Amino acid sequence: MDELIRYPFLHTFNPIQKINATTIKERLSRKPHQLFLPHRTDFYMIFLFTEGNGKHCVDFHPLSVKPKNILFISKGQVHNFDEKETYDGNTVVFTEEFFCRTEDERAFLHHSPLFNDPLQLAYFEVGERYQELETLYNLIIAELKRPTHPNQAQILHNYLYNMILVTELVYQPRKIQVIPNRQQVLVSEFKSLANEFLYEHWSVDNYAEKLNVSSRTLQTAFSVIEGISPKLWLNERLCLEIKRLLTFESKTINEISFLLGFKEASYFVKFFKTRTGITPSEFRKTRQF
């Protein structure tokens, strides 16, 4: 089995700033074959689709591309373009280093519902804000083409920040309040920690302790905001990671089990089969490319 391809950030217009903007067709023209295969990226991506149709697959979910829809892909997510695509759009890619210059900016990015929950893909129609987002994209392109100057990084950061703020207003999968209350913040912090420490196989109690709240407080907040328990969300998040590793890594079942913190491979197999109906080996056979 081939190892999953990981793509690092590459500069185009500007050799200094770790933010880039191109159309989808321009992006595919550089590495067309590789990008049609599932791959991970070491940066964040925003796709604002402008025309055409087709599929874009993210973490085993084929999304139907529609003009004026936007898609957010977090660092480390698995995705691939449709080889038969007829769609185009604007893409903005940026590194964590570029966006997170302060702890507040790091917290904002990691807690944003657009990026912090791979179980709820942030793909939706932007409606009347489409023109505004396209303008921000064009401003990023124009600034990247200018000679480097002392204020350039701040200007680019502001444009990107505004893109995220505007789309957060549109993205309300569970009618989340625009101004987060304490429970919403707690759930976002939990998801951010879970994405960071997933391989440690922490319990809900471990996360509650790390967040300086009681397990009951965390359970209640998650139930109110998500409608499920944090334990169920953790299990589904872990199951997604197992699928990624089974599909794109050459590690054995035992190695993956150990990597993800399972004490016994037999429990790992039982955990996966309970949630998918098939064993890890059976799943791997269905996903070979």
Results as ranks from 00 to 15, higher is better:
274 T>D: 10
153 A>I: 07
289 F>R: 13
280 P>C: 09
225 I>A: 11
4 L>K: 05
268 F>H: 05
195 N>Y: 05
231 K>Y: 07
9 F>V: 08
240 L>W: 03
169 L>G: 11
2 D>C: 04
77 Q>L: 05
275 R>S: 12
47 F>M: 03
194 A>H: 05
140 I>Y: 07
44 Y>M: 02
152 Q>T: 08
233 W>C: 00
134 E>V: 04
218 L>I: 04
202 W>Q: 11
158 N>L: 12
63 L>S: 06
80 N>M: 05
86 T>Q: 13
96 E>N: 13
182 R>L: 07
141 I>R: 10
251 K>P: 00
211 L>G: 03
247 T>R: 01
77 Q>C: 06
126 V>I: 14
68 K>H: 11
160 L>W: 06
104 D>Y: 01
212 N>P: 03
141 I>F: 01
51 E>A: 12
92 V>Q: 00
70 I>M: 09
15 P>W: 06
71 L>G: 02
286 T>A: 09
199 Y>S: 13
246 L>S: 02
233 W>G: 02
172 Q>V: 12
184 Q>E: 14
220 T>I: 12
140 I>F: 08
2 D>S: 10
269 V>S: 04
104 D>G: 08
146 R>N: 12
9 F>H: 05
192 S>H: 08
8 P>K: 11
255 E>L: 00
197 F>T: 00
20 N>L: 14
76 G>A: 09
144 L>V: 07
276 T>F: 09
241 E>L: 13
158 N>Q: 13
74 S>R: 01
75 K>M: 08
149 H>R: 15
63 L>G: 07
277 G>R: 10
253 I>F: 03
45 M>H: 06
227 G>N: 10
276 T>H: 03
243 K>I: 01
159 Y>H: 15
184 Q>G: 01
144 L>A: 10
55 K>I: 07
282 E>M: 07
156 L>M: 09
20 N>Y: 05
254 N>I: 03
229 S>H: 03
207 Y>S: 02
45 M>Q: 14
110 H>T: 13
131 Q>D: 15
206 N>Y: 06
209 E>H: 12
55 K>S: 13
24 I>Y: 04
170 V>R: 15
272 F>N: 02
100 C>G: 00
194 A>Y: 10
35 L>V: 09
79 H>E: 05
86 T>L: 07
37 L>M: 12
114 L>P: 00
79 H>V: 00
76 G>S: 02
268 F>Q: 02
179 I>C: 01
160 L>N: 02
178 V>Q: 08
78 V>T: 08
60 F>M: 09
118 P>Q: 06
194 A>P: 04
132 E>A: 14
108 F>N: 07
12 T>W: 14
267 Y>Q: 14
172 Q>S: 15
108 F>A: 11
57 C>R: 10
